[in-house]
Structure formats: structure tokens, C-alpha cells
Amino acid sequence: MNYQALADQIKQWATELGFEKVGISDIDLHEHEPALQQWLDAGYHGDMDWMARHGMMRARPAELLPGTVRVISARMNYLPPQAQFASNLSDPTQAYISRYALGRDYHKLVRNQLKKLGDRIEREVGKLGFRPFVDSAPLLERPLAQKAGLGWTGKHSLILDKDAGSWFFLGELLVDIPLPVDTPSENECGKCKACITSCPTGAIVADGIVDSRKCISYLTIEFDGIIPEEFRSAMGNRIYGCDDCQLVCPWNRFSDLTQQTDFHRRDTFESTDLLTLFEWDEQTFMRKMEGSAIRRIGYLQWQRNIAIALGNAPYSDNIVSTLTNAKGQSDILDVHLDWAIEKQLANLPSTVASHQRLIRIIQKGLPRDA
């Protein structure tokens, strides 16, 4: 079989399936094992115990699918039109949601397209051992993508491509045929440290190394406990994920908008008023988030995240009363509600604060100089 011709054909089929770029790599990731172990030993994975549980399997694709000799890495752009980054982040009364989550959950869509690609290859070569993955297995997808020529690992740990930036999803198709491999991408970050210096919580602790425990994306999505108070103000109005490290990256000036309408902003998020989102009941949340990646964090975590954002918003009597009325659903939620209420009161303009204090004094029947 002419495997070079097959590899070229695979890339054409992938383009027809909606992928912007495809590359092929071998499965040797042994050089990444020490760094992975050091990252785990440092506790940078936070409460994501499954990352430590699978250990070095992440660097050994053949343990996921015996017989694997190549990985086909593919990328699909997700940047929606009218992303409204600046206007959204600068308005503290509006919720900021990471741009990858504004539309349909990408996992199923990308995986389905990879499955179609595997089926198409099998029709060409006969019986094929293959398996698609999209964030669904212990696999070092970024080193594989770099080996396949899809881009290099930036200092924020995401894959960057000089022609497309970083606004794309990655997926992998493990196969058992010896396709020719592509040339790995060279790192072109240079001396730029924009992503490191702009991280709101200082989560990028070294080039390419992120301490998940400080990362807003981890805190709002993967972590379901009490968010450390030291990070709450820095979270601002970010209620699901954070894009800051990508927003400041010079390479993202070259990003293309997605061709997938499924990744466009859903009608639900045409308005992202914090109070409106917070006042959804659980049934409304589940209905409006159907088909969204956001649904998996659950209602109480959704409310927890918005409560912090409301605490960071300008003072409003309505916000304080809404936060107060929401208490009693969960001990973890109450911790964040109490913080948000206290933060709101601290945000009172001095003249208003004096007026409020006078009212409280009168209500208590105390002398005015008390």
C-alpha cells in the first residue's frame, strides 16, 4: 500500500469533515514522562484525581488501544463571530463565559467527525484498528499535536499555530497502520510572556506549566468545592472558564472564525446579565443548558460561580437581596453567598454607605455617635 498517498487522502477527507488541519505522529512520548510526573508530584492537577490515577498511561497511547502505531491529530476552530471579548469582560454586570462554551458541547461533534474519518479510512484499507478521542481518555494530546505539526506548546500550555492562533479544539484518532509522520512544529513564542503576566490569578507558574489550583478555568469548571478567597476578586465576572491568556497572545491576531454554526453563540447567551442567570431555577438551568458543555458542572456550581461575580459587581440593593434569598440550598454555596454579600456592602459608595449606616443606627435606636 502507498501509505504516503493514503496519508494525503486522509487529510483531504478530514478537511471535508470540517477539520481545519490534520497531522500524523508516532506514539513515542517517553521524553514527556518526567515533566508529567513532576507536574503531578507538585500537585498542580488539583482535585483532578483521575490525572494521577492514570499516571504514565497518558504518555503511552498503545496502552489505550493495543496495536496503535500512529496518532492522527486534528483541529477544529471554535472562535465564534461577534465574540465580544472586550465589551463582555469590561461590564461587571455581565457574565463572561469562555468562548469555547458559548455554543454546542464540542465533545460529541468532534468525536463523531473523527469516527467518520476512521470509518472512511477503513473502507479504503480494509479492517482497521482505530479509536477516536476528544478529552475522553488519559492522553497527552498537546505533545501529540505538536509532533504532528499542528502547532507548538505555548507558555500558557495551549497549542499555538502561527497561521491560526489557539482558538481550536483538538481530537485524536488512534490507528494501527504505519502512516508516514509529519514534521513537528517549532516553538515560536520567543521572549513573549504576555500570557504569563496577564493571568488574573498567576496560574502560569513557568513556561508551559499551569498550576490548576490557581487557574480560573479549573476553579469554575473542574473544582466543585469552596474557591479560595484569595482568587475570588480576581475572577471578576468570569463564571465559566477564562480566556485571558489567549486574548493577549499576539498569534491570535491570525485566528480564523469557526465554520461550524454549532459553535456560534446560542440564543440563551444573547444576554448574559448576571442577575438574570443567577435567578434561573434548576429546571431552567437544565433546559437552557441542554447540549452545552456548561451543563455538566451542575446547578449549584453554576450559582456558586455567579455569586462570586455578583459580589464583584457594583453595589445593588437587588443583588444583595437576591443573594440573601438564595441562602440555604448548600453549605458550600452559602460560603460564597456570604462572601458576595459582604463584598457588595464593601462596594457601597461612601455617601450611600453613610446613609445606610444612619438608617441602621436609627432602626436600632442607638445614639447617632454610637
Rank of each mutant, 00 (worst) to 15 (best):
Y100N: 01
H45T: 09
R131T: 11
I121C: 04
L275I: 14
M56I: 15
D135E: 12
G67I: 04
G165A: 03
P138F: 02
Q37L: 13
K364P: 04
L160H: 13
C242F: 03
A313S: 15
T351A: 15
H355Y: 15
L275M: 14
P367W: 10
K21D: 07
R99V: 12
D182I: 01
V210E: 03
G23R: 00
C192W: 05
L79C: 10
L174P: 07
Q4N: 13
N2D: 15
F231V: 03
Q38P: 00
L6C: 04
A83F: 11
E282H: 04
I341M: 05
Y106S: 07
K108I: 10
I27G: 00
R287L: 14
D224L: 11
L345P: 07
D262H: 14
D105K: 03
V71E: 00
I308P: 00
V71C: 05
L139Q: 08
D26K: 11
R304A: 03
L337H: 09
R60L: 12
F223W: 09
G190S: 08
P367D: 15
L17I: 00
D26I: 05
S316F: 07
L89E: 00
E124T: 15
E230Y: 03
A293L: 02
D182A: 02
D91L: 04
Q82K: 14
M48I: 10
K343W: 10
G328H: 01
V352C: 09
G43Q: 08
G298L: 08
G126D: 02
L174K: 04
Q329Y: 11
T351D: 15
D338A: 10
I97V: 11
V352Y: 09
M286G: 08
D91P: 02
N77K: 12
R266K: 14
F168D: 03
Q12L: 14
K191R: 13
F269V: 02
Y315Q: 07
P34Y: 06
H156E: 11
P81G: 07
A7V: 10
V320W: 03
W339K: 05
K191N: 14
R131E: 12
R60T: 14
S321W: 07
G365M: 03
A206H: 12
